[in-house]
Design a protein around this nucleic acid. Structure first.
Lengths: 209, 209
DNA sequence: ACAAATCTTAACACAGATTTAAATATTTTG
DNA sequence: CAAAATATTTAAATCTGTGTTAAGATTTGT
């Protein structure tokens, strides 16, 4: 058990976590792949194979222990650890993320924002400081975040990533509509909103298939 | 040509569009799969196969015509048509989307927002009306949007989708952290922000592989 | 006309998902 | 309480979709 976990499974892991949390709240203690499959809209066999790929849970003739399974997934995803975030870009998107309470609840703490015009968003965020980008280099060293959120114009994303890398940041959550280049030991996850909207547009144009 | 386009290609289509736009701006008129591959971080052969799957562009010994190719992709994605959007939920995320100018520039026009507390976001959005959710049913009939953005709490997402379906909406851009159930003739694209952040967390925990 | 560049098409390889068969646990029944 | 029936996972095999490689075809440039 706990050998190689495929990319496809990793992409589904958050969904497992989400659904198992719901089940916990509903007070469901155990569940079969059949039932879980109906909720998640996956085939039972895929669920069994997925869960098996990161450890031998599940009792035959019985199903899976909801709490035990969820705890293991949370640990696998590193959600048992606290994370320190900064947000570069205090536009509407940056501020929306900064104030999205559930991230904080899940252990992703926002330390500060940076913006070319720090006054801009001041009214919108209660507690968090917004620093001018000029101060980013030394402030990042001081704050020592492990995640940086890029919510700035595409044309500044690449250079910002490079500065952050230099200052020790190794994880980027990128909202800028651009494909970044980055070193092997850096982790980047993109949220390309307009790409996502364009895919919806495509699907609307091809309802038939 | 122009037969079945695989899911994998569809997911890459927005990236092609994005990169080709950049090339157009740079004034590049033609490009080979080799060069485009370097920019997009894809193998040249994949690019050739992708482009071939939706039509025979490209001249042998020469490459692809940037503008012609992009126009075709835009048309394929339905980006030559205007879209009418409403946003349900005028929290920070809903307002951020409403004010994201580039969507409007691309032909995705926001008509209105809806919220349980319409006064809440009033100051944040200049031009757009925010209506109370109670008025949604008849207002949607009047406004006739073709896309609805769901930027509301997870617990209200499913019922809202059902109401919108009843009123003729057939495309949903969902930001609520929940997996929705929907009829076959409805198109749904999810933006699960916290899932995306959790995947970043996973990757930080498994740098080695 | 020949060589170089580049696409097109078909064949191959690999990862991911589904199906099937086997094993094991739980529940029911006599 | 033991045996049979049922439920469910595990593990192996098969199928499907996706990406890569390689051979063939077309155009460009000299």
């Amino acid at each position: 058990m706990s050998g190689y976990v495929s990319d496809a499974v990793i992409r589904r892991l958050p969904a497992y976590n989400r659904h198992l949390r719901e089940l916990e709240i509903e007070g469901v203690a155990q569940i079969s792949s059949q039932e879980l499959g109906e909720r998640m809209q996956l085939t039972p066999s895929q669920i069994r194979q997925d869960i098996n790929s990161f450890g031998g849970f599940g009792r035959q003739g019985y199903g899976y222990q909801v709490h035990e399974l969820r705890e293991h997934i949370r640990k696998t995803m590193g959600l048992d650890q606290a994370h320190r975030m900064i947000i570069v870009g205090a536009g509407r998107m940056g501020l929306a993320i900064a104030n999205y309470a559930s991230f904080a609840r899940e252990g992703f703490q926002t330390l500060a924002l940076f913006d070319a015009d720090p006054e801009k968003g001041k009214c919108a965020t209660e507690e968090l400081p917004i620093y001018p980008v000029e101060e980013m280099a030394w402030r990042v060293e001081e704050l020592a975040p492990d995640i940086a959120v890029l919510a700035l114009p595409a044309e500044h994303a690449q250079e910002t990533l490079e500065l952050l890398y230099e200052k020790g940041v190794r994880a980027i959550w990128n909202f800028a509509p651009v494909d970044l280049h980055y070193p092997r030991d850096m982790q980047v996850v993109n949220v390309h909103l307009s790409d996502s909207l364009h895919i919806l547009s495509y699907k609307m144009n091809h309802k038939d298939d």
